[in-house]
Nucleic acid binder design. Structure first.
Length: 270
DNA sequence: AGGTTGACCTGGACGC
DNA sequence: TGCGTCCAGGTCAACC
């Protein structure tokens, strides 16, 4: 489900609500696939700890917890349909709830994930989680260009490769490529220096605007309060197949690239 | 080694 | 109403 702006919105929302709180007890489902570290180990590591922060790294939510002098990072990857909610205890449990962290004051942090592509894990001690790739919001233009220029794969596939940039997914890849007038099928190595500059600028614009609007709610995305985002109203190509391009009125095309549906304007994007 | 494809899951939308 | 098909915002193992 969620890409960088959605994960950013969720992490910030959860942080604001629970930082400084203590986890009194932990419940988990019996779906082993969800737990990249054994569920019992996660439960043990989180029971009785103080939540010091919740932040985003790539598409992963990192919850840092403290016990006495030692700190641990709990990693939450939402996959396609994962949700992290802060709920009052009397709110009915959603189906597909896989973990509940009950706080001292009774509130609960709930991880819900129907499709079970999400993953929960513990980061090894003393090695802060940095994610697989570079951070799109802070990478320099020269690093950005150096990352993509050697790649002999379609630029769309390269943008989705989390070991290059982490945090960009299908929606924002399509939207950034449209705004920079670059066709998704172009080999990354074929982009000129100017096109790479334009692409990074467009990507930053799209991600920042989406964060401001609370992310895109395409189907079931909601933030920590269960509220929907509004960036879907700003989509110019994503899920607009056959609708007129907002610039030139040509119908938006949909193809499958890197196994993902890909939307673009064949007139505006060269 | 880098690039590509299919498998992993459930549920909603749509057509008959 | 009910069944079948297709589609979905992400990864990762297994292949070329």
């Amino acid at each position: 489900m969620p890409e960088l702006p959605e994960v950013e919105t969720i992490a910030a929302g959860v942080h604001a609500r629970v930082h400084g709180a203590r986890i009194a007890r932990v419940w988990h489902s019996e779906k082993p696939q969800t737990f990249k570290s054994p569920a019992e180990e996660i439960a043990r590591a989180l029971t009785g700890v103080l939540i010091s922060s919740v932040r985003r790294v790539g598409k992963t939510i990192v919850m840092t917890v403290e016990r006495k002098k030692s700190s641990t990072e709990f990693l939450i990857h939402l996959g396609m349909t994962g949700r992290l909610l802060v709920s009052a205890p009397d709110v009915p449990l959603a189906t597909h709830t896989h973990m509940i962290l009950t706080l001292d004051d009774g509130r609960q942090i709930r991880f819900v994930d129907p499709r079970r592509f999400g993953r929960l894990s513990l980061q090894p001690a003393d090695t802060p989680y940095t994610g697989p790739g570079s951070e799109p919001l802070t990478i320099s233009q020269s690093d950005f260009s150096a990352l993509f220029h050697p790649r002999h794969t379609p630029i769309k596939a390269a943008l989705l490769n989390q070991s290059l940039l982490h945090g960009v997914g299908n929606i924002y890849a399509d939207e950034a490529l449209f705004r920079s007038s670059v066709r998704p099928t172009r080999l990354a190595a074929s982009l000129t220096r100017i096109e790479l500059t334009c692409l990074r600028t467009s990507l930053l614009d799209v991600l920042r605007q989406a964060i401001q609007l609370g992310g895109s709610s395409v189907s079931d995305y909601v933030d920590a309060d269960g509220a929907r985002g509004f960036f879907q109203l700003e989509h110019r190509v994503y899920q607009r197949t056959n609708q007129p391009c907002l610039v030139c009125k040509s119908p938006i095309r949909r193809i499958v690239l890197a196994g993902r549906s890909t939307h673009f304007c064949s007139h505006c994007q060269k």
